[in-house]
Design a binder for these strands. Structure first.
Length: 581
RNA sequence: GGCCCCGUAGCUCAACCGGAUAGAGCACCUGACUUCUAAUCAGGAUGUUGCAGGUUCGAGUCCUGCCGGGGUCGCCA
């Protein structure tokens, strides 16, 4: 029921007819043909660039093609006029009734309006957060969590079969450090005097773990060689940290479908299998890397290593998979992990990483391209820093975790809904300023509030309608006669709401959930504007007791707007508010 | 030095696989509340899209080079 998709189909059909009539050559690529709302509404309801895109391959003048298309499209019942403009744009005006039809369509579909089959049920894996299991999540992870979760929801809404996945970095030295840190807390719980050397985790959150160990094991872990207690303490601590992380995620409303342990790749032959798959393609060799250009690290010396020929897939240099001591680099298990995802049958992969991982992107894409023979695209979304402010001043907080602001600090102060929306008001690759005061401000300066207010205001209007004796159920409103909705503000609002399906598709295609937030702001703006026109001109009030049918039509539009806002907020993981007091 | 990201109005940012006269909010000025919540709305002013080339019917968007900011660069994860 996407009006834009419908018109695109009409345009495609018109082109096909011209081809059948030999007015255009066959085999044209229609991929670049778009139907979109013109920037200037005076140009009409919709514009297509078809004639300009096809002019070159068809070896014909764009305006001539446009005229031919206009002739065909004008025959369609929904098209009121088709005019050629500028270099070959084709501007279409539609029967207002077609626009009105959007309203009952929204009411019938509810929050599923705009749900799309664009994904075709393709399986897509979104890996995000993947924080080291060494402590509570901090504010940087919040953005990753919200972004990844909203992207996953967006893709689900756009028809993909989505898996949310968390890669547990439990294979490296940092979980050993965690174990040592917990052991120190354990000694402390037994009354020993302890110091936390540099590199250990001094956060308070490990104190209960130490106490728990003391309770369970008494003195038995004291003084023994660390090799004896370390594996057990490490597993115990890692599991506890994961529980903490799950709670943190849950407080933001994020639930992972799967947690994947890096450790599970070691000693099981899986890393070896992944590298064997690369080797079978001739992409693994022993060699010596060139020293980095420019400033040379002081201790640099040439060394033979096991290398992955990532340059065969667009990387700048080949990448080591083994360290000089023979152990795996971080890259090796990550190759195996992505190999596992490919073997699980995903059609597409997405990794959400911090911007500091920018140098890692090419090699990972190379590995995935090699292991899937180019069949599984990997998109890496890099999230930039979150800068915290309070009242306009840079903000630092030292609380339960040592020296960083935790996810809980944020969520407890401003709530999950505000946190989520605010984190999505910027595209992922731009830094984001998060001000504890501004996100709670109740003004149009704050998009979080502005959109919520529109939803609540719609609720209030509907309640007043019901009080005036109008049946405001969706089923009842869907029967409203909409022909009277001709006011400019009403037309704009209907058109904006009708854009929802294509906004979903384009945001999903670009993997950019922030577009949903911006769209909702625009939609809310049209709604607030229309609402206010009723104050200036009583004829335009949503509810006019002397004109019940007009009131019904307007309430149908109000409800449709509210439904779209709720659907959009749903994708962002934000609960719509029904009142703001 | 190599690579990646960013550079758009005074400020914070949009701009839908390249589309018509580059849009919002803030700030500034003017106006609208016995309210369907003025927590809002209407109007005004604001640009060499960092610079220089190139491709194209058309470039903020793509390509090349430069400038500025950030990130990253074997034996961290």
């Amino acid at each position: 029921m996407d009006i834009y998709a419908e018109m695109k189909a009409l345009v495609d059909a018109a082109i096909a007819r011209l081809v059948a009539e030999d007015a255009l050559p066959g085999g044209l690529d229609l991929g670049a043909v778009t139907v979109e709302p013109p920037r200037d509404p005076a140009h009409g309801d919709m514009a297509t660039n078809a004639a300009m895109v096809l002019a070159r391959p068809a070896k014909a003048a764009p305006r001539a093609i446009a005229e031919a298309l206009a002739g065909i499209l004008a025959e369609a019942p929904v098209v009121v006029s088709a005019e050629v403009a500028g270099p070959g744009f084709l501007n279409l005006r539609l029967d207002p009734g077609r626009w009105f039809a959007t309203v009952p369509a929204i009411l019938a579909a509810g929050r599923d309006f705009g749900r799309s089959g664009a994904g075709g049920g393709r399986r897509i894996n979104v890996e995000f957060v993947s924080a080291n299991p060494t402590g509570p999540m901090h504010v940087g992870h919040v953005r990753h969590a919200v972004f990844g979760d909203a992207l996953a929801s967006l893709l689900d809404f756009a028809g993909f079969d989505v898996t949310r996945e968390y890669y547990i970095n439990d294979g490296g030295a940092q979980v050993d450090v965690l174990a040592r840190s917990v052991h120190l807390r354990y000694l402390e719980a037994l009354g020993r005097a302890v110091e936390f050397p540099d590199g250990t985790y001094p956060g308070d959150y490990l104190i209960p773990l130490g106490a728990e160990l003391a309770e369970k094991h008494g003195e038995s872990l004291v003084g023994t060689d660390h090799e004896e207690w370390l594996p057990d303490v490490r597993d115990f601590a890692t599991e506890a940290m994961l529980a903490l992380i799950r709670e943190d995620l849950a407080s933001l409303g994020v639930t992972m479908d799967r947690f994947f342990s890096e450790r599970s790749l070691y000693g099981t032959g899986r890393i070896e299998a992944a590298l064997a798959a690369l080797e079978a393609r001739g992409l693994i060799y022993e060699g010596v890397l060139e020293p980095p250009k420019g400033k040379l690290p002081e201790d640099w010396e040439p060394r033979e290593q096991t290398l992955f020929r990532s340059t065969a897939y667009g990387d700048d240099v080949d990448r080591p998979v083994k360290k000089s001591d023979g152990g795996w680099t971080y890259f090796a298990p990550d190759i195996a992990y992505h190999f596992d995802k490919i073997e699980r049958g995903y059609d597409e992969l997405i990794d959400v990483l911090g911007a500091d991982h920018g140098g890692y992107v090419k090699r990972m894409k190379a590995a995935v391209a090699a292991l899937s023979d180019g069949k599984v695209p990997l998109d890496v979304k890099l999230c930039q820093m979150v800068r915290l402010f309070k009242g306009g001043e840079p903000f630092k907080m030292s609380k339960r975790a040592g020296n960083f602001v935790t996810l809980r600090d944020v969520v407890e102060q401003v709530g999950p809904d505000v946190t989520r929306f605010a984190m999505l008001t910027r595209k992922n690759d731009a830094p984001l300023d998060f001000d504890f005061d501004k996100v709670l401000e109740q003004s149009k300066d704050n998009p979080v509030f502005y959109v919520q207010y529109a939803h609540a205001r719609a609720q209030s209007v509907l309640a007043r309608g019901a009080a005036a004796g109008i049946d405001t159920s969706d089923a009842a409103l869907a029967t409203a006669v909409l022909g009277g909705l001709g006011a400019p503000g009403e037309s704009r609002l209907i058109r904006k709401a009708a854009e929802w399906p294509r906004q979903v598709e384009s945001a999903a295609a670009a993997h950019e959930p922030h577009r949903i937030a911006f769209y909702l702001f625009d939609l809310a703006s049209e709604f607030h504007s229309l609402q206010h026109q009723g104050k200036l001109d009583p004829e335009l009030r949503f509810i006019r007791e002397e004109a019940p049918e007009t009131s019904r039509a307007r309430l149908a539009l109000v409800r449709a707007t509210q439904v779209v806002i709720a659907a959009g907020l749903g994708i962002l993981g934000v609960t719509p508010m029904e009142e703001m007091r």
